[in-house]
Design a protein around this nucleic acid. Sequence first.
DNA 1: CCAGTGATCAGG
DNA 2: CTGATCACTGGA
Length: 198
Amino acid sequence: MKKNFSFGTNEIIIPQQFYLQNSISLAKKLLGKILVRNLPNGKQYFIITETEAYFGEKDKACHCRKGKTPRTEVMYKQGGTIYVYLIYGMYWMLNIVSGKKNHPEAVLIRGIQKINVENNKISLGKLYDGPGKTGKILQINKKDFNGKNIYDTSTNLYIIDTPFEIEMSIKRTPRIGINYAGKPWTEKLWRFIAEINI
DNA sequence: CCAGTGATCAGG
DNA sequence: CTGATCACTGGA
């Protein structure tokens, strides 16, 4: 399915205020939004297909369960701040801090799908299903992104409103890779997966 | 199933 | 300083 469309002036950056909501509703609302990555060889567009919410110090799955440390410090900033960390020595995880200042919540971006743009026609491309694959294709690293703002274009990574009609169905599951957290945190349905058609 | 790979943090 | 652990992935 292809649709006539050109990004161009249709880039409406989602304002910082959007990120002040709690991480669970933000995780849901980020689905279907467009992640823009501006690289030397051109802008690339991805639609967000999978997210996971982490909900502050009381959430035993959240990095902030141990309070403020050098790593988790950025999660205490206001919503819209980018939180990046390396896992298993290989994979850069991209998170968006949510909520007000000193509410250490975040949304992990776990999956994105490429939007192909060709002669003003758009179509869905390759799916990157997993946070490691997502960080790799977006060329995420800590130095360039950790502590920066996702609503600021100067990092060449930002999120815009979905500028065309989409069909989307959403599923929820428990979060992945957090068995150390124990109940009830392992059972919370805080992973959101979207199936998208354009 | 399991190895790879290095930041992070608690404990001496 | 040491050692265990880890919000993962790809290949037997």
